[in-house]
Amino acid sequence: MLDTDWSDSWRGAFGIELRAEAIGLAGRGWPVFPGTYPSWPADGTWQAPVPAHSDWREQLGAHPHKVAAWWTGAQYSLLVATGSVLDAVEVDAVVGKRAACLLRAGGQPAPIIAMPNGRWLFLTLSSAGTLPAALRDDESVRWHGEGSWVPLPPTPFQHGVVHWRVKPEVWGWRLPEAGTVHDVLVRALAGEQAAHLAVAEASVAA
């Protein structure tokens, strides 16, 4: 069951915020579209959002006015399609934390999303290529490219709400090249980490 308090007031507040986020992102050209929303009271079957409409692919690139209409009077999660404007690489929290620190240490932009299930999403410019073998062959890594989607904050999820670890506006809404982030994720997957993270982990272990 969801740990979040899904009272009417909470649902109303999230609905307003989700609508505002959807409109803003659509205005920036992000292919957002509605996702399913948890029922109230939650029945224990809710896991994660999926497209609310079967024709979601045909709705991509809708004008912000149409996006606003979708979220007016209806409650939806916020999803963004991958494979055109952006892609996403999904990793576990350990690799995600390492990669985030490596990116920050190198001064490289990368919007990062954390999901309540312990998974992190690294957003990049869309790439027609494939993942490096080290990422592609690792079962803990998932690439979201053409035909896929990812949830955007503040989408409700099992045991909480999707949130930004690094907001797009921190980097002036610049999405990084896919190869740049892939290379950092390969390093993080191999155990490399920024010096300050290594010191912090060592002190915790001690």
Rank of each mutant, 00 (worst) to 15 (best):
T124F: 04
S7L: 10
Q158K: 13
W71L: 07
A68Q: 14
E177S: 12
A202C: 04
H163I: 01
G83I: 05
F33R: 04
H182D: 04
R142E: 13
D8K: 14
L25E: 03
G179L: 04
H65G: 05
A200F: 14
E192Q: 13
H63I: 03
Q108T: 14
P109W: 06
I23V: 15
L18M: 12
L185P: 00
T36H: 08
C101D: 11
D87N: 14
L60A: 14
R98D: 04
A22T: 04
L121I: 00
W71A: 10
I112G: 05
A195W: 05
V94L: 14
T155C: 15
L103I: 11
Q108D: 02
L78D: 08
Q158W: 15
S54P: 00
M115G: 03
L18F: 01
L197W: 05
V80A: 15
Q193F: 00
G147Q: 03
E139W: 11
S77E: 11
V67M: 06
Q108M: 10
V162C: 13
W173T: 02
E17A: 14
P64D: 06
V85I: 11
V204F: 10
S7A: 11
A88S: 14
T130D: 12
V181W: 00
A134L: 12
W120K: 02
V161F: 01
P41M: 03
Q158D: 11
H65S: 15
A22F: 03
H182T: 00
L103H: 07
W6K: 01
W164S: 03
V181R: 03
C101R: 07
A42K: 00
P132D: 09
P168H: 10
A26L: 03
S39R: 10
A62D: 13
E169P: 00
S39G: 08
H163M: 02
H53S: 02
N117S: 14
D137S: 10
G107D: 06
G83S: 09
P156K: 07
T180R: 14
Y76N: 07
A100V: 04
P111L: 09
H163T: 07
R104F: 06
A195G: 00
G191Q: 03
